[in-house]
Design a protein around this nucleic acid. Structure first.
Lengths: 295, 295
DNA sequence: ATTTAAATGAAATAAAACTTTCAAGTGAAA
DNA sequence: TTTCACTTGAAAGTTTTATTTCATTTAAAT
């Protein structure tokens, strides 16, 4: 039999030889791993109604020097196997590094998406949608690797006949673009990783003019997010060599979905109008199928 | 503004009024929640290189009696929001068919990705990567809703110092762009749903000049895909009201990954060069951490 | 029933984790 | 430049946590 050395298996291996009270301790730990990692020996003793001395002996029977060492072991196990971040890291690292294995890449994208679910908060999403619908003009900023995100959202929102402008400029040109923005407008900015000069300029101008800012970021550092009116947190994860844009795109989809939902019939109307125009002037339907509604 | 009383928001609210060392504590806690919940004040003090006394003061400034109380609060937040079980529970609690239910949207994206795995074929992916690396110039076409895809791939490939140009034009302008393309180049085109006039023009010119075309599409209709040298099939699925770009982005990632893999050290070199430049001329690193490699 | 070895908890002891004090350092206002 | 309020770390002091000792209980073997 393979000797397993994590604390769970350590307990299992010794279990049969343990006396009554210590079995009680083992049972509780196994069943309440995620509580025990936060308990002191005193509190654990109270919860279990087993003396502290016996708990120390239990730890020593398992091969530890004392209780703190046992707890360290439990925490290690907990963090290695039971924590969301670690589990995701593991599942990504576990994949062999074959750059042509599409399944692998997709698997890691899926892990990212799954972990993203818990970092996005419904309230912020609703406020984001409201802000977009309320705004006179929406200016969407995204530079470099984020231009595609800005472009994506701009294109989709424009299809709902919202007044949306994509701004992918930096340096001095940024100032020119910012001149015409006023407080009934909304700025959407995609900004990851850390602050840039442009970002700080943008935030300062927005603050000055009283313009709301919807920030989509993976940063949770106060200096970055403090000035934004709404923050949507897009965890891009510890993806090995490069950061995937899958999660931000999913957030865009959520926004688009929300806007479509709030617009209701109006959204459908805008789209069918578009389809009419396409049919008339541009698209050729050589596949002999009628044009179908698509946002 | 609604008073948020969890420890994360407590920190955010007080953040601006905190002195230097205490900001450092706040930053660390926010970024390393799942470590801090397991640290004693002594170890935290060592990690942060901030005295224990200051950590106690930080806790008191946040309204706690002392450090143990702060930690209890952090643990509560951690267990409420960051633990796998709780996260799951929270995402399930949401209502069905709710446009603000991010979990649901993500779930459908995941389904799309899963089904995409089976439609992409490894051989085509490898040929695509080879074609990109072999090409003199790469011209990437994507209009309308696909512009973001073209942009995404262009940006990433450019970072490897490949000669890549994004072409998001239509109508007569398209012809001008096509004039300078020759048979050592590669055309990449994102084209979904059905053929357009522009698409057919592009394919005809490519055929005329003997230029290879990598087509990324969800169509399997012969007229569309017949003329392309390589086809990557991106199933966007029967997604309700609109088509998600998550799958095409994942395909982009696969291509980027493949190119990076083939380039090997050269890719790393190009990236670190970029980071050097950034460090020197553009980025401000207010978090006092060095810029890390990122594609 | 008696013996004996093992297990246990109460209490004493030791070791940490945590808090307070105080003197020195910092930086903004006078 | 000086003042003053504020921040900080070192070190002393306090509280909590963990360990050991020891007397008692338990239970298996005789």
């Amino acid at each position: 039999m393979i000797r397993q050395s994590d604390s769970y298996n350590k307990i299992l291996q010794k279990y049969d030889d343990l006396p009554k009270q210590q079995k009680k301790i083992a049972d509780y730990i196994i069943q309440h791993f995620d509580e025990v990692v936060f308990l002191s020996i005193t509190r654990l003793s109270n919860v279990l109604e087993v003396s502290e001395a016996t708990i120390v002996r239990f730890a020593q029977n398992l091969g530890h020097k004392g209780f703190p060492e046992l707890k360290k072991d439990l925490v290690k196990y907990y963090r290695d196997y039971l924590t969301p971040g670690e589990r995701m890291k593991r599942s990504i690292e576990a994949l062999p590094d074959d750059p042509f294995n599409f399944a692998q890449i997709v698997e890691s994208e899926i892990q990212l998406l799954k972990s993203a679910v818990s970092t996005i908060d419904r309230g912020s999403l609703m406020r984001a949608v409201d802000a977009i619908l309320k705004a006179n003009n929406v200016y969407i900023f995204g530079n470099g690797g984020n231009e595609c995100l800005a472009n994506h959202l701009t294109f989709r929102l424009a299809r709902f006949k919202l007044k949306v402008v994509q701004q992918s400029v930096s340096g001095k040109n940024l100032f020119e673009k910012l001149l015409s923005i006023n407080k009934d407008d909304l700025i959407i900015d995609y900004h990851f990783y850390k602050s840039t000069i442009d970002f700080r300029r943008l935030m300062n101008v927005a603050e000055d003019k009283g313009v709301s800012v919807l920030l989509i970021t993976d940063s949770i550092l106060p200096p970055l997010i403090k000035k934004a009116s709404i923050v949507l947190h897009a965890e891009r994860g510890p993806a090995g060599r490069f950061h995937s844009q899958v999660v931000p795109i999913a957030i865009n989809n959520a926004i688009i979905n929300g806007v479509a939902g709030k617009l209701g019939d109006k959204a459908v109307l805008a789209l069918s109008e578009l389809n009419q125009m396409r049919k008339k002037f541009y698209y050729i339907d050589f596949a002999d199928k009628s044009v179908q509604g698509e946002i």
